[in-house]
Design a protein around this nucleic acid. Structure first.
Lengths: 346, 346
DNA sequence: CGGCAAATTGACTGCGAATGCGAACAAGCA
DNA sequence: TGCTTGTTCGCATTCGCAGTCAATTTGCCG
């Protein structure tokens, strides 16, 4: 019953095996697999034939050991990004793969896991790290000490020179607020993300700042957790606090906005956008679904992931490069979940 | 302006460096980092102190080269799984991490990419592979020839002994169909996934078989692509074909079911579930959202990912193990998108 | 305090591929 | 043909660590 194909040599095939079969030296084999090496076409043909015959593939581990590059990058991402997660991951991975780099995935369930992780990441001799999670200053110190290039994705340190790729959160919030104010909304609710999220902070602060700047009088802020349900509970908290429902709710991400919208319609029987305007941030897929058609700001994920990958790989080749922060504008998507003045779209 | 901390030694720290500082041999250092090795506590203390001082971390690459294990597993996943993707990935990664294995991520945009990928995967000397993508028989041959253990996630080959972890798709569809039939639905529409998806095939076939078994007369099948929009277009196709709307639409996944549901309500003004029942499969997050509350079958993702990881790691340690297929029952979630007889929930 | 077993330690080798260097060889020129 | 250039190839070494084996130390008992 055992269907094992016992005829093939099940052990690892090394460059020596290929060399022996082809009657050449191991160096020759090595050179044949190195693009741009000096090899005669006759040699290459012989080696390749032998390699094929044996099913030889160069051992990336051994190669890394001597070359000092693993062609591997760590992607650290906290899993609470939920809806947003696959898009980033796929984008990063595509860009990395195109340049011959593989992604080692590190998912964080809790931000505190990152400490244990960091050591591991570095053990694996990754060429670089792309971090879409919260890092503390000492953690950044630790990475820098190891001289591993890293890029923060959608977070940055104001007081610190680090590589970062960010969506301009405040700008996006400003657009949203401008549009809401212009349409005459007066009582504002804000549902922030978890307190330790810098993205949430920037968005919330950005919205708040603009609201104040434009003279909004009635603003309440409650905290959510970026999850769907906290959109609903956030709305409830806002209602409790205000004593009525606000005119507009600004959510720190789309997922909460969708939760808020659902709660408004189905729990409180409010018409959206007539009775209540809801806006989000991110531009995740479900935000475009017919039931929602959310007014939001879409992050240019593919440009951002491409930038992150470029930045990291440039720095792998040239560690001397100065840290750089790149900000990307989002794209306002008017949607239909907020009552806006005509042509308010940016 | 350069804030580079130039005081620390920026180069790699090896076990020799630690050994020199501690005044011991390199072997001693190595042993100190190997759990269960024979080392005196005095030695360990000295070495650890030196290691800490230098910021030494053992080089996993060198370790892999000699031990023949990379503590790395490839996770190959096609990105069109969209909503479902993060859950799987996080689950797999958590389980792998717990056992000290890192995931190398390979995302497929098109299933055809897998050929190019396979060579790469194997170059990286992964200890095993978890494949949530379509593999052809020759591709499986290729992997087996390399003697790399692999587990198929949610696909299996009927005629072939391979390791696989699957949700029992037909069983789930049977539950759904039973419930729909019991509630008196008569005209059925099925929106399948892409033709080359085995998951879609099993679900569609499963539903069809059960429908016929129970004597359903009116059944139409149209093809979708697992995406949100194809739920709507699928419904349109069904209406065109039938000349009216069906009583129930069975979608090969949740995402399409949600699209179908939205189209039914917002495009055709149908009441769901009164005029039309819609069921899906997967149990993704948004299916539980208030706007939808989809009737579906939830895959036990965390048990499945755990099983996949166990299977793969068992086979890394013991390559002789016979191939095994594990099937998991889903969980029927009655929801509110289908008109069901009372207490029809399994 | 001698003697023996057990525990601990260090020298050395090898994992598999890449590369500097010199040898061998081919091509170009007078 | 003899000599110079330029290619191509093999030898030997290297990457960083783990495991083997023999040497050494330690502990323990009579």
């Amino acid at each position: 019953m055992a269907s094992t194909t016992a005829e093939s040599p099940r052990q690892r095939v090394t460059s020596y095996d290929v060399a022996r079969l082809a009657g050449v030296s191991q160096s020759a084999v090595s050179r044949c697999f190195k693009p741009g090496a000096s090899v005669s076409r006759k040699m290459r043909a012989r080696v390749m034939k032998a390699a094929e015959q044996l099913g030889y593939q160069p051992n990336a581990i051994a190669r890394s050991l001597i070359s000092g590059r693993s062609n591997t990058a760590a992607v650290v991402i906290s899993s609470n990004t939920a809806l947003y997660f696959p898009e980033i991951l796929v984008g990063l991975n595509r860009n990395l793969a195109q340049r011959g780099v593989r992604a080692l995935l590190f998912t964080l369930e809790q931000e505190s896991d990152i400490d244990r992780l960091l050591d591991q990441v570095l053990q694996y001799q990754v060429d670089g790290m792309i971090v879409a999670a919260r890092l503390s200053a000492p953690q950044i110190d630790a990475i820098e000490r190891r001289a591993v290039p890293f890029v923060l994705y959608n977070r940055s340190f104001r007081d610190r020179q680090v590589n970062a790729v960010c969506c301009d959160q405040s700008e996006g919030e400003r657009w949203l607020v401008d549009a809401l104010i212009e349409a005459g909304h007066q009582r504002f609710g804000i549902i922030s993300g978890p307190g330790d999220s810098s993205v949430s902070m920037e968005r919330t602060e950005g919205a708040l700042a603009r609201l104040r700047e434009l003279g909004a009088k009635h603003i309440s802020v409650v905290e959510g957790d970026f999850g769907y349900h906290s959109g609903g509970t956030g709305l409830k908290k806002l209602r409790d606090r205000i004593g009525a429902h606000p005119d507009a709710v600004i959510c720190a991400n789309d997922t909460m906005a969708l939760g808020c919208l659902d709660a408004a319609r189905h729990e409180y029987g409010l018409a959206v956008p007539e009775d209540l305007s809801v806006v989000g941030f991110d531009g995740v897929g479900p935000a475009r679904w017919t039931s929602y058609n959310l007014t939001t700001v879409r992050q240019p994920v593919s440009r951002m992931t491409e930038a992150a990958v470029s930045m990291i790989l440039e720095r792998v080749d040239n560690p001397q490069l100065q840290p750089e922060k790149r900000f990307f504008s989002g794209e306002m998507i008017p949607g239909n979940s907020a009552r806006l003045a005509p042509a308010a779209a940016r």
